[in-house]
Design a protein around this nucleic acid. Structure first.
Lengths: 209, 209
DNA sequence: TGAAATTGTTAGGTTAGGCTAACTTTTGAA
DNA sequence: TTCAAAAGTTAGCCTAACCTAACAATTTCA
């Protein structure tokens, strides 16, 4: 694992986020998202290109390399875990949790992160309530919101889903379905997310209301 | 509350720590503790002097002003709380907890810190075991270790004791007693601490072993 | 299709927080 | 009491990450 500065990690994470919403990621998008001057973004991107984490031809769009994507996913995973912890365990307000997670993600060691994940897992097991009626996420209609009760995917897909911020307890809303019924577009914790229908069918949710 | 950079906060905290162990704090001590070149320390101290947080005549020892001391105590309180949280709640190893707390203390918002303190307080109340035999901390002999069960001090003194890192559950060891029986010298969480005998008598402990 | 608007880059500057080397002041031991 | 070692300061430099201003490339659309 490379030793990236916090700032560069933030760039990677932002590129990842944007690439899931927009078809191309451009300097201007990043500048707006991170609230940094275009010129500064441009310079930082050059650094990331030198590090082989990002590809960009002059004046062209920005794309993560596979190493870059890997790094970005790790960063985001930490970010989301931390936020989840702050919100669900400590009861910090979401806006503040978001900001703090953003800053803390850079100072927390892998060991502590692991313990934090353990703690989250343990606390999720505790409240054993009566079984609820659940459906596949893919069954929800546009506009409906559900709370994830179980992730039936395994292996890489399970990990990926988790990295995308979808975990037991997460609220997820259907934003829309593509013309052919696939993929589906969701909103999770303020992020947009696309999943293929067969992927969504491996996530069980309890429909809200 | 001033808006100090993390680095300057670290200096303040280190000065406070050193001032409790040494009679005077010098540039060299700080340089060694923080692992930073003397020249850099010297410069940073000038900044702190400009900010009225530290007093120093040229070539003389370093002393916190009252504002500086206040700031330093706040920083240390956050540091210790975080470390305590990492160790006691998450079960992170002390060495790692120490390092992480050091870095995280600068990125955590007051709101989150409050929640964290609440959480610690709540988790301390849960395990209600049978009452134990306790004594006043002032009754311990040199070399004995006790676990704090109650702090009977109130108001400012109570706050001060807590800021010094002494809280319910804290292990505290008697390092020695001054010739006249006062003050007493303790070791708490790797720090040295002096308390007057009458202050120590307001802390109840359960003797270890 | 070509000028205006948008997007991206370059040049040059700032600040914080480090560093080394060279200097000055203080201290303490012969 | 004097002078070498230790302690502290100053000068000058570096890097990361930001900035603005000016310039270059690319789109867009009239």
């Amino acid at each position: 694992m490379l030793d990236l500065s916090s700032s560069l990690q933030d760039y990677l994470e932002a590129i990842l986020e944007l690439s899931e919403v927009n078809s191309t990621v451009r300097v201007t998008d990043l500048a707006k998202k991170l609230n940094i001057a275009k010129a500064s973004v441009s310079q930082s991107i050059s650094k990331l290109v030198d590090l082989n984490l990002v590809q960009q031809e002059s004046y062209g769009p920005i794309e993560l390399t596979s190493t870059g994507r890997e790094q970005a996913l790790k960063v985001r995973r930490r970010h989301r875990m931390l936020r989840k912890f702050l919100i669900e365990i400590l009861g910090v307000k979401p806006e503040i949790a978001e900001k703090d997670a953003c800053k803390m993600e850079h100072s927390i060691s892998p060991e502590t992160m692991d313990k934090l994940v353990d703690f989250l897992a343990a606390s999720e097991q505790l409240p054993q309530e009566e079984p609820k009626m659940t459906t596949q996420l893919s069954q929800l209609k546009k506009g409906q919101t559900g709370t994830v009760t179980k992730i039936e995917a395994t292996g890489t897909l399970r990990r990926r889903i988790s990295e995308l911020g979808v975990n037991v307890g997460t609220k997820i809303t259907v934003l829309g379905v593509a013309p052919m019924g696939d993929p589906m577009e969701f909103s999770v914790q303020d992020y947009r997310l696309s999943l293929r229908k067969d992927e969504a069918s491996l996530i069980r949710v309890e429909v809200d209301q």
